[in-house]
């Protein structure tokens, strides 16, 4: 069986970016709002999938690093007046630093214990965010994180006068696209190849000479850093950082998005993020029972489409191709 080469040669990140750029010009303000949300969640899920799909590690506490990124960027910009160009990468570094500390303990354990430990650390982070009034604002959260200075975007040739929300949208998709390009490269690198060997068979991976825990920790730190970037963007987008960002339900939500899209493909999780954000907006205008709908979606997914949306599409495409192609003797 040959593996699917479907669209391998197409630079999807660039294609999607070039399409997404047109949203403020062609869509409504609401579309831009939704687009920003989807772009941020897409980065969040892709960072998680570096652990889940590439390394085979189930983290149930990935929201911790998202939240740390949001708080770090928010505190730097609001409390200390640090400009975005510094606060943004600093948020990633701080999130990665926490991932390094927590991850050091987590990778000592395997499978379910790993998942439980990541969750436990995330709950600790949540408790701190929720109660450390002096720094995080406690249960009030950290409201009014300022927008970065974005006038320069409107002054770019051909863009004209844009609202601040449009400018932030463009900044977001640019940052997300750059992050995707980096993560895509990391997955394709020898380092990424080593991660896939650990996913397939940690025992054998150790016996081709890999220090499995060190590689797992490295993946955990990279994933945490990019989750921190997503969180930093989200804090600004949502005009504040709140303890909810770190709560276990947020960690579960990204996991659901990730497998909804399909963990075996780079673009699976972003598709899942797109589907879930869109569905959420559609549903919440009809009913308050969004968790119920999410639970049902999850059940259908678990029992009906374990490969996720993209997994299902690729399987369908393969079947179609086999049906259409004349059989060779």
């Amino acid at each position: 069986m040959n593996r699917v080469a479907l669209g391998r040669s197409i630079p999807w990140t660039l294609v999607v970016f070039l399409i997404a750029v047109w949203v403020p010009a062609l869509g409504s303000r609401y579309d831009t709002f939704l687009g920003t949300q989807i772009a941020i969640d897409a980065l969040f899920v892709v960072s998680l999938n570096l652990l889940l799909g590439t390394t085979g590690l189930v983290s149930f506490g990935h929201a911790a690093y998202f939240g740390i990124g949001a708080y770090a960027c928010g505190i730097l910009m609001k409390t200390y007046g640090v400009p975005f160009v510094i606060a943004f990468p600093a948020a990633a570094l701080i999130a990665a630093f926490f991932a390094l500390i927590f991850g050091f303990f987590c990778v000592r354990l395997s499978a379910l214990y790993f998942a439980m430990l990541t969750l436990a650390f995330a709950q600790i982070v949540w408790a701190i965010c929720f109660k450390w009034n002096a720094v995080t604002g406690g249960d009030e959260g950290l409201p009014n994180i300022p927008y970065p200075k974005l006038d320069w975007i409107s002054s770019l040739p051909g863009l004209g006068d844009l609202s601040i929300a449009d400018e932030f949208y463009l900044l977001t998709i640019l940052m997300v696209a750059l992050s995707f390009a980096i993560l895509r490269q990391v997955i394709r690198s020898p380092f990424g190849r080593m991660l896939t060997t650990i996913r397939d068979n940690p025992e054998r991976a150790a016996f081709i000479g890999l220090n499995v825990r060190a590689y797992e920790l490295a993946a955990f730190v990279v994933a945490g850093g990019f989750a921190g970037l997503a969180g930093a963007l989200y804090g600004i987008f949502n005009r504040g950082a709140f303890a909810d960002y770190v709560f276990w339900s947020k960690s579960a939500e990204v996991l659901i998005m990730t497998i909804l899209g399909g963990i075996n493909y780079f673009w699976g999780p972003p598709v899942g993020a797109f589907a879930l954000v869109w569905l959420n907006q559609e549903i919440t205008s009809y009913t308050q029972y969004w968790p119920f709908v999410l639970g049902v979606v999850l059940l259908v997914l678990l029992f009906g489409f374990p490969g996720g949306i993209v997994g299902g599409l690729v399987a369908g495409y393969e079947r179609l191709r086999r049906m259409l192609r004349p059989r060779h003797a």
């Binding site: 490269q185 990391v186 394709r188 690198s189 020898p190 380092f191 990424g192 190849r193 080593m194 896939t196 060997t197 991976a205 081709i208 000479g209 890999l210 590689y215």
Partner: peptide
């Protein structure tokens, strides 16, 4: 290829394409 990469200590390489090695 993965075994060769691991053995030659190339696993830390973030910036190349693994299939070229």
């Amino acid at each position: 290829q993965a075994a060769l990469l691991a053995h030659r200590g190339r696993g830390h390489d973030f910036w190349s394409r693994s299939e070229r090695f």
